[in-house]
Nucleic acid binder design. Structure first.
Lengths: 198, 198
DNA sequence: TCGTTTCGTTCGGCTTGACGAACGGGCAAT
DNA sequence: ATTGCCCGTTCGTCAAGCCGAACGAAACGA
């Protein structure tokens, strides 16, 4: 199977415990079940032998990139979702909290709110809302995460069952693939919204 | 080489013209040169035969995931950077400008400021700065782009040779791999900073 | 009870990816 | 010129990925 051992060297990707094979094995099975495909059906669509797929999901073997590519195409997902570790929940960082890095040159403070997971896409919105009926979002595509930093005003933001009240500077992140709301509590409430999807 | 043809089926990943092999070939070479490694040296670090690497970069063959993984580890990059297609300038969107999507349910307006390029990482900062000496940033790693949305106050932001004055709600994006500044022009100037690196 | 279908796994074979060694070229020191 | 070293490519061998076919299990209807 493996003729070499890539076990040493500094791991940039968050060391996935069992190496790439097991990671891909579980990823493929996860995506296949999410797509409601049988092993046989997926193999047919990907134009690979189902024996190949069977062994792959069993964590045996060491698939080639063409095999992997064919599977990703058939599953309708980017290849990277099969090769990078999975991830989710609500987290709030209040204005003034969080790890701050100060500048020596100027009065300048930056707070790291969220590091970007490998391979995610983050789309950036500016939101301006007025009090009244809250905006309830349908869940987006699975794997979506939203981040909101309130700029001005006040707002109730987060999962529909447990939204959080934000003041200017507050930050919240929550799953975007579950129902969630944005309800302005003050006039001219504005925020930055980042929609992150893998 | 390829025994199957994954050519059909709807392509979710933005069809990379020449299939996964060529894509990986150029990605590996690009990352290797970025890391200033010789082919021989990289092969040694990845614990793979240099012949394998040579053919891989030539666009021949069909590497296994273990080979790919070992290379990504040795290069110090996530695997996804080798399997997704690759990809800067100043752009400003003033508050109130830009494509706005309104909600039917509530007084809620979202403006798309920047779609995320495939495979980029975006790290999210909250910035609070006071007037005085501007904060001049050293250029970051090549391929970095920064985005700033001013929340409160006023600031001079952008490339050091041509910064732009921002008011609350204004958005700017500029290359992060060239010198750039953030100079607060009013007390308690705050902003959201997204650092995007490939 | 017996076919029929679909599921996922297991079994030989052909094909090919990965390996090490050998090769030719470029460069610097001797 | 010669030696040494590193570069990247080419070649033959061997292991293993991929394949199709055969297999047992489970579900459904006749």
């Amino acid at each position: 199977m493996a003729r070499h051992t890539p076990s040493s060297a500094p791991e940039p990707s968050p060391a996935p415990a069992a190496g790439p094979i097991m990671l891909i094995a579980v990823s493929v099975r996860r995506e296949r079940e999410r797509a409601r495909l049988s092993l046989t059906e997926l193999a047919k669509r990907a134009r690979i032998a189902k024996s190949t797929l069977s062994q792959l999901e069993a964590g045996l073997g060491n698939p080639s990139v063409e095999t992997l590519w064919a599977l990703a195409v058939a599953l309708g997902v980017p290849v990277s979702r099969l090769v990078d570790p999975p991830r989710s929940s609500v987290r709030v960082i209040r204005a003034g909290d969080g790890p701050v890095t100060h500048s020596e040159q100027a009065d300048y403070a930056a707070t790291l709110l969220a590091t970007c997971p490998p391979n995610a896409r983050r789309d950036l919105y500016r939101v301006v809302a007025q009090p009244g009926a809250p905006r309830a979002s349908e869940p987006h595509t699975p794997g979506t995460t939203e981040h909101v930093v309130l700029a001005t005003g006040r707002a109730l933001v987060g999962p529909i069952e447990a939204p959080v009240e934000l003041a200017p500077g507050d930050y919240i992140t929550y799953p975007g693939d579950a129902p969630h709301i944005f309800e302005a509590l003050a006039p001219d409430t504005s925020a930055i919204l980042i929609s992150e999807h893998i």
